[in-house]
Every structure is written in structure tokens, then in C-alpha cells.
Design a protein around this nucleic acid. Sequence first.
DNA 1: CGCGACCTTGACGCCTGTCAACACACGTGG
DNA 2: CCACGTGTGTTGACAGGCGTCAAGGTCGCG
Lengths: 255, 255
Amino acid sequence: MHSAGDVLLRRLERFTRLSGDEAAVARDLTQRTRLVPAHSDIVREGESPGDVRLIVSGWACRYRMLEDGRRQIISLLLPGDLSDIHAAAFARMDHSIGALTDVHLAEIPHDRIEQAMLARPTIRRALRLDMLAKAAIQREWTVSLGQRTAFERIGHLFCELYLRLDAAGLAAGTSCEMPITQTDLADLTGITPVHVNRTLQDLRARGLITLKGRVLDIPDFARLAHDVLFSPDYLHLDERRHAEREGAALEASFP
Amino acid sequence: MHSAGDVLLRRLERFTRLSGDEAAVARDLTQRTRLVPAHSDIVREGESPGDVRLIVSGWACRYRMLEDGRRQIISLLLPGDLSDIHAAAFARMDHSIGALTDVHLAEIPHDRIEQAMLARPTIRRALRLDMLAKAAIQREWTVSLGQRTAFERIGHLFCELYLRLDAAGLAAGTSCEMPITQTDLADLTGITPVHVNRTLQDLRARGLITLKGRVLDIPDFARLAHDVLFSPDYLHLDERRHAEREGAALEASFP
DNA sequence: CGCGACCTTGACGCCTGTCAACACACGTGG
DNA sequence: CCACGTGTGTTGACAGGCGTCAAGGTCGCG
């Protein structure tokens, strides 16, 4: 069990190195926390965006419903993920955020984020990179939904989720939690629940995954990644290393 | 024919009111311009992102290719659109930007944007809102590709494009330019070119559009919007009015 | 024990993809 | 001025991936 501050720090340090002082400022942001039960909304379309939210534990999602009931999940918010730090600039939400599981979140007033970003360029930089990485994920989902088959979409999603969870320290060996239903997977991938089921069986039959009791296992990640045309670049999981390599001076400290 | 400065100002003023002074600062950003021929790349995946780019005229797109040749267009860059103002924070592009038509663009060094944002909160605010609006469009495309039928996808795209072009002053009555091929439309909507063709004929047969000689006409926008479940909220085309209404004081000047 | 949420399976059909051919416009070069 | 080539739009026949409908199975929990 990690505290909200730990979770935020881990995320920021994915992108930059923080001094003890900066870490304190960041940690200080996550004072107010809240528990949201599964299947309830965190913010609803049309409402005011409210505070910035950090997922401390559990899974949430952005989603939109069409008038006739179709639902598309637009993005997943996993532990360590921040809702849009600038969302408050719009008066109304154009989509909803809902909890897929019980969610523990921290609510950060946007003016405090704003202050932290102005006072600490390093924090601003980390939050900016996080924002860019989120945008990149959104783009890749566009590619998946536009071009990939059902088989590839689900496999690709699993690759992404495994790596994102691993980066948050939530993978164990070749396994990670997958605490959502096949109906959720359907709304994530734009496939019907029935076909999700069949596709999962296909993935299992080929030995690419096991998925049982809300735990996903990917015995041979490289093989799955190959078969579903997954490439991890868009996740920008090692931006800090890239940045420091650019900075050149610190090269030696990363063998 | 509008200058790069005009185009940028018009875009910023979609979101906020600029003083003469702020306008001058903004206009001053667009000094260097460049012409890019149709079907050539502006930046390629793997390259350094380079400067911020403003589309002055013509259409460009972000796109990604899968190893086996499938191409998905991730977003469209229309006149007045800015490429990601923070993109330079990443060392490498994770997708390409290509010109669909001949494109006239302005290249703005990112440090000059950075300076303008720090010196002028109003400009920072406008650029931030523009960024948010782009993200909202990306989300809606996710919904389209995930949930909408071919018919709805194309109709929805046309609604969006008409309104975006209209906001840029590029619509005339119920018509606007549509300078792209059916193959481009296919890569935009995740449909095959053949099926795009059939779907266009369906839209025409129902009297919802005419599309001929690179000009799109939507005789009854409300009807098309209804038939394809289009709602313009996500475009955030009147954010300035919303913001000023919040500010309350200026209400009277917008009858 | 019984209910509800979730997963699974089968039959059937349609939306969309594939393959292939043809029409048409346009620009270039002979 | 015409031949020709290339890019684009159009059409038809056919197939297959995925959606729909419906029923049954499993599990957990009050």
C-alpha cells in the first residue's frame, strides 16, 4: 500500500529527477484523498471539471455515451495517472470519468498545481512530459481502433497495460492485475462483449496469455507484442533516461 | 489570402481577447514561413520534433503506419491549427506529420513560444485552451472509431470539418473545401477506400451531402448532425464566450 | 438457497473488407 | 493534337470478421 504522495512522486520521477525540496513540494500536493466505489462516476459530462485527480489505487476511465446507449471508453486511468491538469480551464466536462473498480484518489486544487508548476520548473517539466505521454497514448488508441483487428486490439491493449502497470510497480513477473470485466474490455476496444470473449479464447488457445480470476499473465511478451504489432515507443516509459542522455553529463550513472 | 500572423491571431482570439500589445507579441512569432508540397512529410517518425508549426493554408495530418502498410491518420491539421507546442520536450517523434495538400506553414521556435507564454498570461491561456480543444477532438475521434458505423464516421467527420473550417473563416454558406481523396478519408475513418466510396454515395442518395470537385456541401446541417449523432460541444468553438460569461461583466456585449 | 453479475457457446446475418475490372480526368511528351 | 500513364473514383461479386440474439453455465454473495 503506497501513499498518495509516494504514487505521485514515483510518477514525476519517471520523467525527471527531483531534489528533496522539489519532492517535498510535490508530496505536499496530495493532502486530500477520497474513496470512490466501483461503477460510480467521479465527474460527469456537463459538470464542472473540479480539481485535478491522482489515481492512488484502482482503475478509472474516461468515457462517453452516445444517445442510443453505446459507450466508448476513451482512456484508462491507472494508479499514478493524473487527470488533465488544465481541465479546469474549460467550464464543462465534455465526457465523464468513472470508476471501474473501487478507486482511491487524491484531489489536488488546480491553483496549487499551478503554483507548484510556476515555482518549480522541474515539476512543471515532469507534468508537461506526463501530459505529452498521455496524448501519445490517446493517439495510439486512435490507431488501434482505426486499423487493428479485434485480436490485435485486445493483445495490444494487454501489452500496453502490462507495461504501464509495471512502470507503476504493479506487475509481478509476467503477470499483472486485470480487474475489469469483458464488457469493459469491449467498451475499451470497440468490440462487442461476445466477440471479446471469443477473441480472448483465441489468445489463450495460442498460448499468448492466460487470464483468470482478474489476473493477466503474458508468458512471452515479445511474442505477443510481435503478433499484435505492439511497439512500446509511444508509452515514453524511459523519457528520463533519454533526457539525461541528452544532458550528456549523467551518462555514466546509467550503465 | 491571410498572413501567418492573421491566422494565428484569429485562432488565439477564439479563446481570449487580446490587447493590441499582446496581439503584437503573438503576431511577432510567425516570422519564418515555409511551403510544403502535397504528399510530402513535414516531420517524420523518429526525427526530432523541431519547431512549433502553424498551418497557414492547406491541410496536413498526423499519421502512423503499421509495419504491414496500414496507415491511420491520427488527426487533421487545418489552417489555424498549431502542432503541439510542447512537442520539443520529447527527443523523437512517435508519429509523422504529412502534407495532404500543398501547405503553407509558419515555423515558430519553441523557446519563443515559451517566452511569449511566460511574458503574457493571456497568450498562455489561449494556447492552453487550444491544446485542450485538440485533446477533446482526439477523444471524440476515439469514440467515432470505436463506436460509430462507417456511415456515421464519415458524416460525423464532415460535420466536424465544416465547423472547424467555418471557425477559421473558410466556409462559404453551407459549403467548404474538402481537398482530400477518398483514400485519405479511408485512412481518417478506418474504413477501406471502396467502402468509403459506397458510404459517400449513401450520404448523397439521402440528400445529406453533395461532394464534387473537392467541395463539400451540407444543405441541412442539423439533419446530418442528427443522423450521425454529432454534437458540436467537443469542439469548444465558443470557449471565449463561455469564459467571458463566467467573468460576468462582459455579458452585455454579447447579445 | 436463490439471485444477479459475469462468462461461454451456438446459430445466423450483415456490415465491411477483398479482389478485380473499368471509367474518368489530367498532365506530359511525342 | 493525340497517345499514354497515373491517380482517382466507381462498380460488382464474393468472403469473412464481427455483431446480434438467445440460451445456458458458473460463481459469489446476501
